[in-house]
Design a protein around this nucleic acid. Structure first.
Lengths: 356, 356
DNA sequence: TTGAAAGCGCTAACAT
DNA sequence: ATGTTAGCGCTTTCAA
């Protein structure tokens, strides 16, 4: 009996050299224009179905890949969209980016898919300006900016003179740009209302930096409903430098040291809430029995805690969908009569805001 | 006294229409070639310093931004690098991406800055292949792939025939590509050694999916050192479906139910560790007194816990630097004699692996 | 030191 | 239904 024969894997090697349209056309004895039409989605019908199939098959076989740079240069359109995100570690931002990317990639009835170019704003002095310039040099057809600040207004306005610029997650007041954002004021109110429903009378909030509109709005909404519901809000002395857990811990220490203790605490995001919880534990206290606590964003941490946290779900899907829709519409027609939209967040009740 | 006069902000508006090199040249009465040279970094010395400055000033004033598509088409080089990441929610991956981006952006002695294009592999069937094709169509000069799996080998090989492809964080065995990875075997051993040093005799590990090389290696290294140090490793019955906290909880339940209990537990990442900790709490147990526990990755969660976790720091900086260096070298010279490197992780002792 | 001319790979207008 | 032609904006010879 012969030994087993080694199975030789013959791999179909694509030609190592890149082939261009001219060569492909020569191989097939047709004109470059015919190739271009046959491979396009909108002009394919101009080519007889037999040659179209022949061309497509040959293109695949030859590993032909159109040069998008050349196509962009000729068309004056790249079918790309620049997505500018301030912090790739932020769960909400990444979720929004993901959904926008998925939406843009899809071929939509009105227009082909758009290729997203994702980039993070550097910490550098002119991070936003630099990134915008890079995007424009790359000839993006539109730009989506996540969590822009008022300081970016000028740079954004400049960019908006050239291509549509859409704001997501956070809008800015200095210029009127199409945007898809969250109603943070309503979010804050939602939490206060939840506390009121569960008969809390003395409550407080751990605020994120009040220089950020998001947190300012959450604070305002919360305080407004406090007043309306006749609850007493203990002012939280310190303004946190950043919305992270260590700051939540500091805030907790202040709250625990104060003479009048609230029965419920609203943390402007889950990170702050976590810090508060950690500090409570250090004091031998547990939630929601000693303090009711509600966070914001429904991040992973809020879900994986031993006692999952009542929190507020950011309207990721709606914000993403509207941002993508705005971009599509504006890329298709720069004079599109756009409308900014503000979406409502939703309270996710996991029970930690209930007990007194 | 007259009323305060409203301060009129006259904003210098950049020309609304994009200006191109031909127009700029006409305005200045010089040839396009001179503009091109004056604005380049490597050929600027060919232009007299007076005209060079005149051109640069005029370009800035006019808001001239070169069309990179046209430049790429002509040069045959885009100075862009495609970065492919499997999961943008993964903290380690994002940190690596960030550092690579920062490195590539910098103008290096050997060559100009490279613009990174970041994209996430879709969940779709052919996510990797599709993304690679998009990158190649965008004429990237190189591709960096984070956490590729063996299943991607063919697609990567195909891409590598056209441009340099560098693997980061996770290598693959099927093809020999330049890579920058972490020595996970050593990482696992590091933890076991730590346990041995602190006189644990019976230990166990909560493994990530063993289909993933990373976790397989961590497991192997841990087990090897266990044997060498004469410790007894309790086999953990279940193989986790994913390296997330819920799986860590399941594993904990199994461990707590078993007759022989280990005194120390190694979780293959911080998420699994968190799940274990949560489950322990549910049983009224605390770490490190009831169980010593060590995680992996030094993610935010390991740091913000009330009792910060002993964990293993991933060599993010080294992996990133080497990946970027490989790309630079290979973009400069495709025949560069590259060397893959494996970097050692480091144990961060926060005390939770000590107590018996 | 600067200018003239060619051409990267593609697509769109026009012609057949 | 297909071919012909021109040109997108830039860089790079080559020539002056």
């Amino acid at each position: 009996m012969p030994p087993f024969q080694a199975k030789t894997i013959v791999r179909m090697r694509k030609p190592v050299k890149r082939i261009n349209m001219r060569e492909l056309a020569a191989n097939l004895g047709v004109d470059r224009a015919t190739i271009s039409r046959a491979l396009s989605s909108d002009k394919a019908h101009l080519v007889s179905s037999s040659t179209r199939e022949r061309i497509r098959a040959a293109a695949t076989l030859a590993g032909y890949r159109p040069d998008l740079m050349a196509a962009t240069l000729r068309r004056g359109r790249s079918n790309t969209v620049g997505i500018m995100v301030s912090d790739m570690m932020n769960e909400v931002l990444i979720r929004v980016v993901r959904e926008i990317v998925a939406d843009l990639n899809r071929d939509h009835p009105k227009g082909p898919g758009l290729t997203p170019l994702i980039a993070e704003t550097g910490d550098g002095s002119d991070g936003v300006g630099h990134l915008l310039r890079t995007f424009l040099s790359q000839r993006v057809d539109a730009i989506i900016s996540l969590t822009s600040t008022e300081g970016d207004a000028e740079a954004l306005e400049e960019a908006a003179a050239e291509v549509p610029v859409v704001l997501a997650v956070r809008g800015i007041t200095a210029i009127d740009l199409p945007s898809a954002t969250c109603d943070d004021e309503a979010g804050g109110a939602l939490v206060a209302e939840h506390f009121a429903t569960h008969h809390h009378r003395v409550i407080c909030q751990i605020q994120g930096p009040q220089t950020v509109a998001t947190f300012k709005n959450r604070a305002a909404g919360f305080s407004r409903l406090c007043r309306e519901a006749g609850m007493r809000e203990i002012p939280q002395g310190l303004s946190t430098a950043a919305a992270v857990s260590s700051e939540g811990r500091l805030a907790a220490d202040a709250i625990l040291a104060s003479s009048t203790r609230p029965t419920a605490v609203f943390a402007h995001n889950d990170g702050l809430a976590l810090g508060f919880i950690e500090a409570m534990r250090n004091h031998g206290l547990a939630y929601p029995d000693d303090f009711a606590i509600v966070g914001f964003n429904n991040t992973e941490i809020s879900r994986v805690l031993a006692r999952p946290l009542t929190t507020v779900e950011y309207p990721v899907a709606q914000v993403s969908r509207h941002a993508a829709a705005l971009v599509r519409a504006l890329v298709g027609n720069r004079d599109f009569a756009w409308e900014s939209q503000v979406f409502a967040p939703m309270l996710i009740d996991r029970g930690t805001g209930r007990k007194c």
